[in-house]
Design a protein around this nucleic acid. Structure first.
Lengths: 151, 151
DNA sequence: TATTTAAAGGATAAAAAAGTCTTTTATTAT
DNA sequence: ATAATAAAAGACTTTTTTATCCTTTAAATA
């Protein structure tokens, strides 16, 4: 569905957001450790997110990444995905045909339209705040992976 | 959504099916030309589909590929996709996390569940016959691409 | 102001996906 | 039988994605 880069990007945003809600700036190292991603690759992705004004960064000691809390509920999943993977996920033909359109549909056009509309709807209506919700009581990605929160 | 290989695979199956309905066997060359795909790469994909019993092949003069008409309405999109891309499209976590599950969901688990169920539903219920329908009056992929059927 | 810290930038490397080429094998028709 | 045809098989190349490394730039603080 998403590229690896995009998966890391979303995970990073969610982690940064949870920490920013507690007014904590986080370093690349901390992010990569927490979301279990390769550090230098994560750096590249964060650069892109900073360029696209989704994440803020500060250099130097006590620097790091953050997302202004007032933006956390206006940043949509779409914004993150679009920054990294573009719009190919809900645009473009399911069979990769250039001329596919409503007027000139490929054989699976109608079946796909439903799916793609669903994806678009989800990306357009899910915001970062929703995604951080439930993670705020010290629940983090690594802890999810280690099943610390299973009953 | 699908890999390039899978897109070609689906397109090839649809074309082979339309021709098989007229009792015509088709060669690799004809398929690749018709669905606008690289010939040697298409060969690889067809080999895989033959191994998975979705397509039949005959070597030698007047040989080629075909799909037994009695199978055309029982072969599901799922079967083709599964042969080439596996089940990653509707299994696996949207954020690529190993431990993601109903009990231990990733932050976008619930949003994704809806999408993945939709994809699974579509793949499981769409058969090859449905996809060939409307293509049988001489309508082919290339003609779609060239818009010969626009009004 | 010098030093340390941490992100930015750019070049490089490894892995995976996409695509190509050549040889072998099976089938048909002469 | 033999020649011609077309798929199967396997090695190989290119491109894209993923990942790494090293140098530069900016900010904080001692």
């Amino acid at each position: 569905m998403f590229s690896k880069a995009c998966e890391y990007g979303i995970r990073a945003c969610i982690y940064i957001a949870t920490q920013s809600l507690s007014d904590k700036r986080v370093s690349l190292k901390e992010i990569a450790k927490e979301i279990d991603s390769p550090e230098p690759f994560t750096a590249k992705i964060l650069q892109e997110l900073v360029k696209n004004k989704i994440v803020d960064s500060v250099k130097g000691p006590s620097g790091g990444f953050m997302i202004s809390p007032s933006n956390i509920s206006t940043i949509m999943l779409r914004d993150i995905v679009f920054s990294i993977d573009g719009d190919s996920i809900y645009k473009g033909c399911g069979l990769g045909m250039k001329e596919c359109s409503e007027i000139c549909p490929c054989p699976i056009h109608n079946q796909f339209k439903i799916i793609k509309n669903g994806i678009k709807e989800m990306l357009d209506t899910t915001n970062l705040h929703q995604l951080t919700y439930g993670l705020q009581n010290g629940m983090t990605f690594l802890k999810i992976e280690k099943n610390e929160f299973r009953d």
